[in-house]
Nucleic acid binder design. Structure first.
Lengths: 242, 242
DNA sequence: CTCACTTTGTGCCTGGGTTCACAAGCGCTT
DNA sequence: AAGCGCTTGTGAACCCAGGCACAAAGTGAG
């Protein structure tokens, strides 16, 4: 969806035959499974897990079946074992070193986001072009000048880069990351990035998400051709006018 | 993809016949068009616009054709007119008032994110449960206690809510937003939210995006040798292959 | 006016993803 | 040991989306 993973050779396309849509859901399953494990639940049925993950149970079973036959008919799935298998499939058995480029508000928030560290990722380098930011400590790590980008990538063996810069410099930063050896990029800048075939880019665009919501919101309102106040007055809604 | 827009009646699904996938791309087109407009370009072909947006030109034409026949054969599209039409379709002719719940690092970054304001959205309320944050001014707006949530939603006629709280309280916040009248939610908390049918939820999950990247990264690296070094890190039940 | 050229709009085909529905398999009980 | 109930795994149908390729439609030159 985000990028176009269309390899030149069709043969390389299915390495393990796990569909892209399934890959995108595995992290959700993993989170639900981890929560169950923390609660001490040892076995879970596809129906329960599907509900927790917010998907159809048939879809969940088919997704899991791409990884192998890890369930027991009549019983369900062993939570601990499934956590292990899904983690392994996602490549989370190891810690991936990550670099964040751009430490404005967003980059700052990302560096401090606990969800990264806890799930197989380790932020190893922070760089920014602003001299005022260089030297500042963020999330226990010192911000380095952007000139050290290549060096830091090499030293820590970084394969995953996060771009949280203004859109104007995103492509330039991206190019530098790629030529330094980064092959997966998470882009928060509102720009379409051009990258070589073998580099994977995923885009997170906050304003796009809001615009999609606005579309649906408008559709709701405009469908009945009424003001928002009248919509709110539908039965079952809490009274808005205090 | 992000949420599950599964209406009970399939008939209600297409109000205007614009496919969901198209809606998701319209904001990208809009951004490219706005950039062109700023450069003073008055006419653009589907080929040029498609390149700028990073999509296939046939797809772009088909997407635009859902909105109407706004191009001129042999010439292309009028940039200004298309900006207007796409904006209108997305419901951006008006400014949507938005509330942000949770002003930790992420909420703070969101409140300061210029991309919102410039594109049809106006952040009208900030609330947080932490007493230390209440009263603090963020992006020119004062953070209010979470108790005022309902009141603020009503006063500003807010239909779109952004959740940037810890996962543990996200569902509770969501429920309150919904019962206060919010019908579109952008969720940054790493949780699956349960909402009534008519409420639209979109999810942005940073660690999920990284995990998807890790999958592809692992596939590139480990096509030959599977990493089994950290096998002992799994719960005792994984005495399988190897 | 006619012709050549350009670009849109779309019919059709292909492929991936989702869902249904059911057979296969497992454990528990009798 | 056999039967019963439960749950997985998957074949098959359906639906949405993407992309090719072309007819339709407009422009400008001669």
């Amino acid at each position: 969806m985000t990028s176009a993973p269309r390899p030149a050779s069709p043969r390389a396309a299915r390495t393990r035959g796990v569909p892209e849509a399934t890959v995108a859901r595995l992290p959700v399953y993993l989170r639900a499974l981890s929560a169950l494990a923390d609660e001490g639940v040892s076995t879970v049925s596809s129906e329960e897990l599907a509900t927790a993950a917010g998907v159809n149970s048939a879809k969940l079973r088919k997704d899991l079946s791409y990884l192998g036959s890890y369930g027991t008919r009549g019983v369900g799935y062993d939570v601990g074992y499934l956590v292990y298998q899904v983690s392994r499939e996602l490549g989370l058995s190891q810690d991936w070193p990550v670099i964040i480029v751009g430490l404005g508000h967003l980059g700052h928030a990302l560096a401090n986001y606990g969800g990264f560290v806890s799930r197989g990722f380790a932020i190893r380098a922070l760089v920014d072009a602003d001299p005022d930011l260089v030297g500042v400590e963020v999330a226990g790590l010192e911000v380095r000048p952007i000139g050290e980008l290549e060096q830091l990538v090499a030293r820590h063996g970084i394969a995953i880069g996060v771009i949280a810069t203004p859109a104007t410099v995103a492509q330039e930063v991206c190019d530098r990351l790629v030529s330094a050896g980064v092959s997966s990029i998470l882009n928060f800048a509102p720009t379409v990035l051009a990258v070589p075939e073998e580099v994977e880019v995923r885009k997170v665009d906050l304003s796009i998400e809001l615009q999609i919501l606005a579309f649906h919101e408008q559709r709701k309102v405009g469908a009945a051709h009424v003001t928002r106040e009248l919509v709110e007055a539908l039965p079952g809604r809490a009274a808005v006018s205090s």
